[in-house]
Design a binder for these strands. Structure first.
Length: 959
RNA sequence: GGGCGAGUGGCGGAAUUGGUAGACGCGCUGGACUUAAAAUCCAGUGGCCUUAACAGCCGUGAGGGUUCAAGUCCCUCCUUGCCCACCA
């Protein structure tokens, strides 16, 4: 018998020549510019923004490719869906790396930037990313930074830009100011000399004025949760109160900021930051020497040292006392570097009983600790019998003594109430002896007070107990013989921390808290919100929230303080003493003072200079260019000098998304009609490292521009997403020094841009970091080769029958894949999108002929990922794939062909559904399931209790 | 110390959000083609038991819990990544 020849599926067609094909299509796109956005249109707009790159000498990184390609997939799909797409690109080129490169190689930063941009541009174009190149911008071109300077002037006019003395990091050897990132382990990155702090007058922008809106408006945008949370934490808003403390024997006052005004009765000392301006006027003669010495030390400590030594508190007494306004107690005023000059008022009231830092400080310097808030267990009951009591945590290395009451089956600590005239210590000593019998012990610690509200089973009363805990250490196992007389019901046992907590908790007396505190001393300064006030006069018995309100009201009534907010966010230091940045458009005139440059004189261009090194004085190199610095005053025409500081490189990137809309406009920074059409940005992708600085700065600038009526929306970005890093094959960060860098040029050369793009989409979840896998890329190449080879199977005249199998199944698959790819691309799950296209490809591969519909669907879906290859096949086969395919929801429903039958949740059988599957209803399927031989075996004659049916999925029989 | 995540085969990772765990890809094994290799094609591939098949048992960091049913929800713990870090 003649066997039918098996059809040969090997790729015998001429191999796909990526070099030729990709170059060809890149030329076509260069010439025809199909990716130009229309300035205005009736079409729905889609503004898709990628963080523009810093054109460094290192060239494009595979990490750039990941996000550029991802958004390229989204915009190519959007275009196929008929949207007017804006996907622009530009260069964020001001900044230190280029300046350092220029200094090192003697090349002007302008030239260096040009070179780097050229490389980046060639690389990006070689990837076939569909940027609208007609809108390319560069932050270092005067036509661009003219408007950066213009925005600065607007900020200045509104009082949001001001000059102030600020400490900067200073390298005494290089004689330059250092950016934070240039200080490595407290030393200059370049020469290794230890850096110092110097005060220099700096331009500042009042971003703190926008802090509340920067938090609140996050509710109106769609950012990843982790991005929102990071921004909120960075801004760090807290609510509390400012309180004025009078200084004893003086007319001076010290204002402190606290988030816990409710604990004011527990303030037993006060601490000022060493830099606090009042320190000088407060110190008494006796302590002057010590204070000065401490201040001097603090000045030389870098931030790093200050935090590294965070556990070990340091400080000195000033000799002065303040008066606690609530109880008129005299409290000593100290200075310590654990208090930051830049946060709050630079001074605190210390409540050592309820703040861990204050607690450590108080322990070290033996300052008093007053408990004013106790942790609460159970709900307060007004009818409860109120008692004061003490409890003992008898602890040896890692075990504590727990008593068991046989009669009532409860566990307790040795404890009891006071007898007349007893101190707490005497009570605990007596109870120890009575309940445990031990007679050779010491009190080695106090564990604080708790407030327990519970039903006492042994006495049958509702009780509210104010309970003090003491840590007890046994000196020996010695026991008194008579002790157990009254307590024969008790039996002691040694328990681990966990055992003790588990045993004591059911009792309801909260004694387990003492055990926790015995093992973790930091818990002693309880400061939670579930507490009750004690030792606090008019606050006693209140919960924390009410106590805070009551205290705030009291402070306001007495004029001593008032409710206040504070932020971790500081104003933005906007000056740099460097050459390669936008000159700040301000002039200093002897007569008129600080004068803004009139708008019509913009841009203030950077002069060409020979040397870019900062000067010995810490001024920008611009200070040395006399014919640039010396100018005339715009107001009086007299002699004046230009500001020589430049802007940080965050400046240009704070508004570039606006300039893309109208990059060549000479009259305005952007025309209003274009802003109205395009803003806000629909999708903005960037690295997590820019979440706190760039993202916050640009939101701030946009809000400011909105306030002055220059832009139409308050929030610039509708949706913000973030890509994960691409790590080297060893799982480490790619770096030159490790020698593990993958250069995209090499990959494009060997495999082609389409393979690189598709591989990076397939490599893993877009928002997670992934390691490069040299083998993985081969799999993607095979996949694209297979698509290429499918051309051979294409038969224009072939169609398949959708009413009969297998045509029906194929039709279903096509719709399912369209659905999955459509949804996955929208939710940026590119890896599973590629996987779905692979499944379709494999399915088509097993057929001898492919219809027009099939190949068009495949190529349409693949086009955003591998546009060169798809364009080439489309042209060769004379196909049309201009539109994104649409799925039929009916057909795209995934119905499994089998129903799983479980017995007690374990898979036991499957029921195959035949062609007329629609006929099967619930009862039929349940019946079929019960008839199954295998099911019968497991039922073993028993009657099923319940039969659960999940449509099209499974039957579970419960016995 | 605080905040946010993550833990699934030999590897990268899927899982319609509580319903057949391991899609897709890599790697590996066997076969076809070849003088041979590469490339390509076909088949298999979580572990254990088994010559093999059938069947079975185990299995999503560990331990408990909720449920007819848990990778998915709840509690405790372990490991790990990133960001911030004396913020009163």
């Amino acid at each position: 018998m003649l066997r039918e020849p098996q059809h040969d599926k090997r790729i015998i067609m001429k191999k796909y020549d990526h070099k030729k094909v990709e170059k060809k299509w890149q030329k076509v796109w260069e010439k025809e510019e199909p990716y130009k956005a229309e300035d205005t249109s009736d079409k729905e707009k889609f503004y898709c923004l990628i963080e523009f790159p810093y054109p460094s000498g290192a060239g494009l990184h595979v990490g750039h490719v990941r996000s550029y390609a991802a958004l390229d997939v989204m915009v190519r799909k959007a275009r196929m869906e008929g949207k007017n797409v804006l996907y622009p690109i530009g260069w964020d080129a001001f900044g230190l790396p280029t300046e350092n490169y220029a200094i090192k190689h003697g090349i002007h930063p302008i030239e260096a930037t040009k070179e780097n941009v050229k490389v980046f541009k060639r690389q990006i174009k070689g990837l076939g990313i569909s940027f609208d190149w007609s809108r390319e911008i560069n932050t270092t071109e005067p036509e661009y930074y003219k408007w950066t300077q213009w925005i600065f002037l607007q900020l200045y006019k509104k009082g949001l830009a001001y000059k102030q003395e600020m400490p900067i990091n200073w390298c005494p050897s290089c004689k330059i100011g250092l950016a934070n990132e240039e200080v490595v382990n407290g030393a200059c990155e370049r020469c290794g000399t230890e850096s110092e702090r110097r005060n220099i007058k700096q331009w500042m922008l009042k971003i703190t004025e926008y802090a509340d809106r920067l938090i609140e408006d996050l509710e109106t945008v769609n950012y990843l949760d982790k991005i929102k949370i990071q921004q909120i934490n960075w801004i760090g808003r807290s609510y509390g109160a400012n309180v004025n403390f009078k200084v004893k024997d003086s007319d001076k006052q010290v204002e402190v900021y606290t988030t816990r005004p409710d604990t004011l009765f527990g303030a037993t000392y006060m601490v000022l930051a060493p830099e606090h301006e009042l320190v000088e006027t407060l110190i008494t003669e006796e302590y002057r020497g010590e204070v000065y010495e401490y201040q001097e030390q603090a000045r030389h400590k870098s931030d790093l040292e200050r935090t590294e030594l965070s556990k070990d508190k340091t400080g000195v007494f000033t000799g002065a006392y303040a008066i606690n306004p609530v109880n008129n107690e005299e409290i000593p005023i100290w200075i310590a570097d654990y208090v930051l000059a830049t946060y709050g008022t630079g001074a605190i009231m210390a409540v050592p009983a309820h703040d861990e830092r204050d607690f450590e400080f108080a322990k070290k310097f033996e300052l008093p600790i007053h408990e004013v808030i106790v942790k609460k267990f159970g709900e307060t009951n007004p009818k409860a019998d109120r008692r004061d009591a003490v409890a003992a945590v008898v602890k040896n290395d890692d075990k504590v003594l727990v008593l068991y009451n046989k009669k009532f089956d409860v566990y307790r600590l040795p404890s009891g109430g006071y007898e007349k005239g007893e101190t707490a210590e005497e009570t605990i000593g007596r109870e120890m002896l009575e309940e445990t019998g031990y007679d050779d012990f010491e009190i080695t610690g106090y564990l604080g007070m708790i407030n327990a509200n519970f039903y006492l089973v042994d006495k049958k009363v509702q009780r509210e107990k104010f309970h003090k805990g003491f840590l007890i250490t046994l000196n020996s196992e010695s026991k008194a013989e008579t002790a157990f007389e009254d307590h024969e019901d008790y039996e002691g046992s040694w328990c681990t921390q966990q055992e003790a907590i588990e045993k004591l908790t059911p009792y309801g007396g909260g004694e387990e808290e003492f055990v926790r505190r015995a093992f973790d001393p930091s818990l002693k300064c309880f400061a939670g919100s579930e507490g009750a006030m004690v030792n606090s006069d008019f606050l006693n018995g209140l919960d924390v929230e009410n106590a805070m309100q009551a205290m705030n009201k009291w402070l306001e009534d007495k004029g001593i303080g008032k409710a206040a907010k504070s932020y971790k966010l500081r104003d933005w230091v906007f000056s740099r003493q460097h050459y390669w940045g936008e000159p700040i458009p301000i002039v200093f005139c002897d007569k008129c003072g600080e004068v803004p440059v009139p708008e019509e004189q913009l841009p203030i261009t950077l002069p060409m200079v020979e040397k870019y090194e900062p000067t010995d004085t810490g001024e920008s190199p611009l200070a040395a260019i006399e014919d640039w610095v010396n100018t005339t005053c715009p107001t009086c025409g007299g002699v004046a000098k230009r500001e020589t500081d430049t802007m940080p490189n965050w400046a240009g990137s704070s508004w570039y998304f606006l300039r893309y809309l109208d990059p060549k406009n000479k009259k305005e920074f952007v025309a209003q009609d274009k802003l109205k059409y395009w803003m806000p940005v629909d999708l903005y992708n960037g690295g997590m490292e820019h979440t706190t600085l760039h993202l916050l700065y640009s939101r701030f600038w946009n809000k400011f521009l909105y306030d002055i009526g220059a832009v139409p929306v308050s929030e610039p970005y509708k949706r913000r997403v973030s890509h994960g890093m691409i790590l080297a094959t060893d799982g480490e960060k790619m770096s030159k020094s490790r020698g593990n860098v993958i250069n995209p040029d090499d990959v494009v050369e060997e495999y082609g841009a389409d393979v690189l793009r598709t591989y990076e989409m397939f490599i893993g979840p877009y928002d997670q970091s992934v390691s490069w896998d040299t083998n993985g890329i081969k799999g993607v190449k095979r996949f694209l080769d297979k698509v290429w080879a499918l051309q051979e199977k294409y038969d224009e005249s072939y169609t398949f029958n959708v009413d009969e199998q297998p045509g029906k199944a194929r039709d279903k698959l096509l719709h399912q894949v369209i659905k999955e790819v459509t949804n996955d691309v929208e939710s940026m799950k590119f890896n599973t999108a590629v996987s779905s296209i692979m499944i379709l490809t494999n399915s088509l591969w097993s057929d001898e002929k492919i219809s027009k519909f099939e190949i068009e669907v495949l190529l349409s879906l693949l086009n955003p990922f591998a546009p060169h290859l798809v364009s080439e096949i489309t042209e060769t086969l004379k196909l049309k794939i201009e539109k994104w395919p649409v799925f039929d929801p009916e057909k795209a429903i995934i119905v499994t062909k089998e129903i799983v039958v479980q017995v007690n949740g374990k898979n036991r059988d499957k029921i195959a559904l035949t062609a007329d599957e629609d006929k099967f209803d619930e009862d039929t399927i349940k019946e079929l399931a019960l008839k199954s031989e295998n099911v019968k075996k497991y039922l073993a004659g028993k009657e099923p209790k319940r039969v659960i049916y999940i449509k099209d999925k499974l039957v579970n029989i419960v016995v």
